[in-house]
Amino acid sequence: MSRILLVPGRGRPKPEHWLRRWADANPHYRWAPYPPAPPFTLAERIAALHDAVTGGREVAMTEPAVLVAHSAGCLSVAAWAADQTGATALVRAALLVTPPYIDPRLPSEPDGHPDDGVYGPVPRARLPFRSILVASRTDPYTTFAQFEEYAADWGAELFDAGDAGHIETASGYGPWPAGERLLAILHKGPS
């Protein structure tokens, strides 16, 4: 059995959002970090994710985690994994849903706007755990070809969600049965 850690995007998911619905329906799921208001910086997101994966200073975790990330939360997962080589052994898998595309040629901007949540280039190294990247053909932040780049770089399986927008409330996603099936595959682990 694995722990489920929910990694939100920049904003607070609305009550109808699939990520919020999953949290409400499954009290044992944990936020990493709790949805921001105002948004956290990337460093704060990475620290919160690290504490959730490892148990922080109080408890050492031995049960593997499955990460469920949406939007900018996917970028937090990639940045955390690039920086935490030892702790990544505590992650069984990740479901990465519609990460926004950031051009890898962009320079790092440590003095960027605090609402950005992510600064500079996104780590493109292969993730050290199984991952499924959910791609939409009509996402306003990322083209399908850019999703394919992320999947190839991160070593993720690509799931084509079709014309699904950003897979959030505005795109009609409250319930998301396909996402629940993908999570069940990752939660079960290798056959």
Rank of each mutant, 00 (worst) to 15 (best):
M1C: 01
M1G: 05
G9W: 01
R10M: 03
R12T: 15
K14Y: 04
W18V: 00
W18H: 01
W18K: 01
R20F: 12
W22I: 06
A25R: 14
A25P: 08
N26F: 12
Y29S: 03
R30L: 11
P36E: 08
F40K: 08
A43P: 08
A48Y: 00
D51M: 00
V59R: 15
E63I: 11
V66A: 08
A69V: 02
A69Y: 06
S71V: 05
L75M: 02
V77S: 04
A78V: 05
A79C: 00
A79G: 10
W80Q: 07
T85E: 14
A89Q: 14
A93L: 05
T98F: 04
P99C: 11
Y101M: 12
L106M: 14
S108E: 14
P110H: 07
P114V: 11
D115I: 09
A125R: 14
L127G: 00
F129W: 12
F129K: 02
V134S: 07
V134Q: 05
D139S: 07
Y141R: 05
A152I: 13
G155L: 05
A161D: 06
G162C: 12
H166L: 03
H166E: 01
I167C: 06
T169I: 13
S171R: 04
P175G: 12
P175L: 10
R181I: 13
R181L: 15
L182Y: 03
H187P: 01
K188A: 15
K188L: 11
P190F: 06
